[in-house]
């Protein structure tokens, strides 16, 4: 049994971390081959295993970097590769193309109900919370009868963008008789979506680790009543619980990484997303609380971490949604 990473994975993680220390530069990340590391050999990459995804996204989470890798590569290029769109998949993995994936529709929560429909080769419908849509060169759109590819700037394609909790941006997208090309069945989503959920969870793990470190340092230096507040047993016990929960989240992420291609993958997806979402919220709330007032300020490092953890729970189904999925999958 081996819970470790290959030498290549470790090296990629380290150079990624070094690159991110210099600032959020997505071109530099793609130059490192990060995109290709997230793709399997069949899909033109040199990685694409659960361990690769875990390594890359945990590093991104720790660095608080906002990058197009989740939507454009793991999900976007992943779907394109599965659909046999090799050229575009490679372009997305190398950063040349930007793909946004429009799955959900307004007011449909996480259940995948879709009304967007095709007439001939034209799509009409509304898509909600599409991350990276504004910068995308291509959109993959889930419609009633499958997945469709839409090019940016196509007639009838409109967007209204806004900021996201994780530091990125998304848009509400409207399609009106917009030219599109069908690339395959909705079932093509399954594997890339599982990989994307792993990516979100690994990212959240990195954020949680960072938040715990930040809080621990603060508790050692902040003094009240003449002592570091970390010397109060009430605070120590809270941190001990927190660390234990993060360890649970770490194992949950490992569980999914190791079972991304297993027959019971869906059960692991549900279990991991449910647990990580729950722990992410707990970590966000507790680390704010234990900082006191400073933890609530935009100026301090914790605020973006806490918001990124909220986003991790809300993305691709929250902890309750996946709890129900787990029950359903386990019963089946």
């Amino acid at each position: 049994m081996d819970f470790g990473f290959t030498e290549e994975q470790t090296m990629l993680g380290e150079s990624l971390a070094r690159t991110l220390e210099r600032g959020p530069d997505s071109a530099a990340l793609f130059d490192l081959g990060t995109g290709a590391a997230l793709m399997t050999e069949e899909a033109g990459g040199f990685g694409g295993t659960g361990a690769d995804i875990l390594m890359v996204f945990r590093t991104l989470g720790r660095a608080g970097a906002v990058m197009p890798l989740l939507d454009s590569v793991v999900l976007g290029a992943g779907i394109l590769a599965a659909a046999g769109e090799a050229d575009l998949a490679e372009a997305a993995a190398s950063g040349e193309a930007r793909v946004a994936v429009a799955l959900d529709e307004p007011g449909q929560r996480y259940d995948g109900t879709v009304a967007t429909r095709a007439e001939g080769d034209r799509l009409t419908g509304e898509k909600s919370v599409v991350p990276g849509a504004e910068d995308a060169t291509h959109l993959i759109v889930r419609a009633t009868d499958g997945l469709w590819l839409v090019e940016a700037g196509a007639e009838g394609l409109a967007m209204r963008g806004y900021a996201l909790m994780d530091g990125g941006r998304a848009a509400e997208v409207t399609l009106k008789d917009t030219a599109a090309r069908r690339i395959g069945d909705v079932s093509l989503l399954e594997q890339p979506l599982a990989a994307a959920i792993l990516a979100v969870c690994a990212d959240a793990l990195g954020v949680m680790e960072k938040a715990v470190e930040l809080t621990t340092d603060y508790l050692k230096t902040r003094k009240q009543f003449g002592r570091p507040i970390g010397s109060f047993q009430a605070v120590q016990h809270r941190m001990a619980d927190l660390l234990t929960e993060v360890e649970q989240a770490r194992s949950a992420v490992w569980n999914l990484a190791g079972n991304l291609d297993a027959p019971d993958r869906d059960r692991h997806v549900a279990a991991t997303k449910s647990l990580v979402g729950r722990v992410a919220l707990y970590v966000a709330e507790e680390t704010i609380q234990l900082h006191g007032g400073i933890g609530m300020t935009e100026e301090y490092e914790l605020a973006p971490l806490a918001r990124r953890l909220l986003a991790a729970d809300a993305r691709f189904g929250d902890s309750d949604h996946h709890l129900e999925r787990f029950i359903a999958v386990s019963a089946a």
Binding site: V129, Y162, M165, R307, A314
Partner: peptide, 18 residues
């Protein structure tokens, strides 16, 4: 649900009109 992904900062809303 997924609406909670949006960052509803009024400061940002004012600045970016989004």
């Amino acid at each position: 649900g997924p609406w909670a992904l949006a960052f509803p900062s009024e400061a940002l809303e004012g600045a970016n009109d989004d």
